[in-house]
């Protein structure tokens, strides 16, 4: 099913800004907030995982019901998970489209990655001494 991905600040994400190696940061930024009726249309229950695919990749997120959203829109707190699938073009303004990316959602039984897994996938090296 097609959706529009919106990203932004959440207070839990904000609390972890300087504690990004914590599990709580990974949990929060890999959450896909979605309208309960949209979840119903996907034939899924809250807490199940979705694969979210944009023109430049896909990522596995956990669903959470959220009636604040209009139907057809998902919200993912800003962080490495959302940015895994956000295209880098800026229409010559310097600013990518962080708030209106067309995506496709599909049920998956795959596990979510951790924030460090994602960084290692693109050539990084985890730092877990804390």
């Amino acid at each position: 099913m097609k959706f529009i991905l919106n990203t932004g600040r959440s207070i839990t994400q904000g609390r972890h800004v300087e504690h990004k190696f914590h599990r709580g940061y990974s949990e929060e930024t890999s959450t896909c907030f979605i309208h309960p009726l949209d979840l119903l249309d996907l034939d899924m229950e809250e807490g199940e995982h979705v694969e979210v695919t944009s023109e430049c990749g896909s990522v596995v997120l956990r669903t959470v019901n959220c009636e604040d959203l209009r139907r057809g829109m998902i919200f993912v707190p800003m962080g490495p998970f959302a940015n895994h699938i956000i295209p880098s073009h800026t229409h010559s303004t310097g600013m990518p489209d962080f708030k209106s990316i067309p995506v496709e959602l599909e049920y998956t039984d795959a596990e979510r990655s951790t924030q460090w897994d994602l960084m290692e996938k693109i050539g990084g090296q985890r730092y877990e001494k804390m």
């Binding site: 300087e18 504690h19 990004k20 190696f21 930024t29 430049c56 990749g57 800003m78 962080g79 490495p80 940015n83 895994h84 699938i85 956000i86 295209p87 880098s88 990518p96 924030q115 460090w116 960084m119 290692e120 693109i122 050539g123 990084g124 090296q125 985890r126 730092y127 001494k129 804390m130």
Partner: peptide, 29 residues
């Protein structure tokens, strides 16, 4: 590392990168 699109972060892994920051962040990686 946490707030740029993946394609931009990927390039950081390909070039020498220094981070000045008190805490480990996603860019540390």
């Amino acid at each position: 590392g946490a707030h740029f699109p993946r394609k931009c972060v990927e390039h950081l892994a390909d070039i020498p990168t220094v981070v000045i920051d008190p805490v480990p962040t996603m860019t540390t990686a």
